[in-house]
Design a protein around this nucleic acid. Structure first.
Length: 432
DNA sequence: TCGGCTCACACTTTTGAATTGC
DNA sequence: AGCAATTCAAAAGTGTGAGCCG
């Protein structure tokens, strides 16, 4: 399932999941993603086809990974059982596609791969990997933002897409043999484990195939140009900026409503249903929810707002449960992140600590360090002045276009009641 | 005792600089 | 000289399984 926005003036942006069949196979077996201290790629890869962009307008592509619910799971024989309450929410990081920003034509000419995205369970990770808890269930989301550069992402309209097939359980070791087998069978890097089981085929059995792979390298490079063509120049450009953007966003649930109604600064608890996924959700349910994979569907909308600067960043009281505000992971405080949504609903200021802060930390790991300092005390939560609500009135954002807001996020079942959608930071942190 | 996690390992693929050919 | 294609070593990415830890 995915949803999209149809409100964008340029027309409908359509996003489809590449290798959907493969994802579906994994999904049917209840996908697991290995997370390690040093970071592990996802398999299958997050790869999407995009259409409907304006060819000459520049876009930034981002991915974040949200908890599906508030549960911790354990593998019990042949299925995932709830094992208790989830660990406190970790700093939410956002992965910027390394080609960003690039013209729409660039994104549309071939599938966009997020193969460099890595998952880790290392809460002190300095490499910009997306930090997850083991034995928890997550849902990746793709964001398309029209912006000339990463710094201006803060002002831009987000269009968000997700695919129910990509939901996964983070694990440090495979629990489900079916998933393990699927990975070995399909992941080229795991080729050595195929056929006769573990280690049985470890001898360099197929040098011919290896040579073939080598000779095909350039071909693949061309085919995967969207990912490979990343330029160091673009990285360094944004490193120089060291930009910090704050996002305040809002998620709308499915029923179409007028844009003007969605002030990000107002509480709106129905939106908390926006990204709920019962997890593990039954296949039947998901089929029912997600018969349509194509986007857009006007099922839900989501606004992304940016604060004008760190000085203004602070509690947006915005939107109660709908608004995912957050501080960057620098300042993320687990206790605060775990406040129940109900609190937010009842008291919009409860969400004040979730500033949407993007630390555009790009480039290679070494370069990331100076941009952010995860959990650094010098940039703790207290750094962010607590702004009064009035700071975030429309006056502060009246430069935003009127249609600014309509974004569609996953059309998850509106009746699901698990995830505290509002407590999950949207773009508190970015990786490259 | 047990479940979850880490790490070294053997293997494959990918990457990018060096080399070669036109 | 310049460009494209090829080669090859190093780096990166895989799951395994033993051992550690709480």
């Amino acid at each position: 399932m995915c949803t999209s926005s149809d409100s964008y003036p340029s027309g409908s942006v359509r996003v489809t999941l590449e290798d959907a069949e493969l994802w579906k196979r994994f999904h049917e077996a209840s996908t697991e993603m290995i997370i390690t201290k040093v970071g592990r790629r996802m398999f299958p890869q997050c790869k999407i086809n995009i259409s409907g962009l304006m060819p000459y307008a520049k876009y930034v592509l981002l991915v974040d990974v949200l908890p599906v619910d508030n549960n911790r799971y354990k593998w019990n024989k042949d299925k995932w059982d709830v094992a208790g309450k989830a660990e406190p929410q970790l700093p939410c990081r956002t992965y910027f596609h390394p080609d960003s920003p690039a013209p729409g034509s660039h994104w549309m000419k071939q599938p966009v791969s997020f193969q460099k995205l890595k998952l880790t369970n290392n809460t002190l990770d300095q490499h910009g990997h997306i930090i997850l808890h083991s034995m928890h269930r997550y849902q990746p989301r793709f964001h398309i933002v029209q912006a000339d550069d990463l710094f201006s992402v803060r002002w831009s309209v987000f269009q968000t897409f997700s695919f129910h097939e990509t939901a996964f359980t983070a694990v440090t070791a495979y629990q489900n043999d079916k998933i393990k087998k699927l990975k070995i069978d399909n992941n080229p890097f795991a080729k050595g484990f195929r056929e006769h089981g573990s280690h049985a085929s470890r001898g360099r059995s197929d040098s011919l195939e290896s040579c073939t792979a080598t000779s095909q390298k350039r071909k693949r490079l061309n085919e995967d140009g969207v990912e490979q063509e990343h330029t160091e120049a673009s990285k360094s450009k944004f490193l120089a900026e060291e930009c910090h953007a704050e996002i305040v966003c809002k998620v709308e649930k499915s029923s179409p409503v007028s844009v003007g109604r969605y002030s990000p600064w107002t509480s709106e608890h129905e939106g908390s249903q926006g990204l709920h996924l019962d997890s593990p959700i039954s296949l039947e349910q998901k089929e029912a929810y997600n018969t349509e994979q194509q986007v857009p569907t006007p099922s839900s909308s989501y606004q992304a707002y940016r604060l004008q600067g760190l000085s203004r960043a602070s509690n947006s009281e915005s939107t109660g449960s709908d608004c995912r505000e957050q501080v960057s992971d620098i300042a993320m405080v687990p206790e605060q992140t775990t406040k129940p949504v109900a609190q937010n609903d009842a008291n919009p200021s409860a969400s004040q600590n979730y500033l949407g802060a993007i630390n555009v930390a790009m480039g290679k790991p070494g370069a990331v360090g100076h941009v952010y300092n995860a959990y650094g005390t010098e940039q703790g939560l207290n750094q962010w002045p607590t702004a009064s609500h009035s700071q975030y009135t429309s006056a502060g954002y009246n430069s935003l276009p009127a249609d600014y807001s309509i974004q569609n996020v996953a059309s998850y079942p509106p009746h699901s009641s698990v995830a505290d959608w509002s407590q999950y930071p949207l773009f508190s942190y970015s990786c490259w």
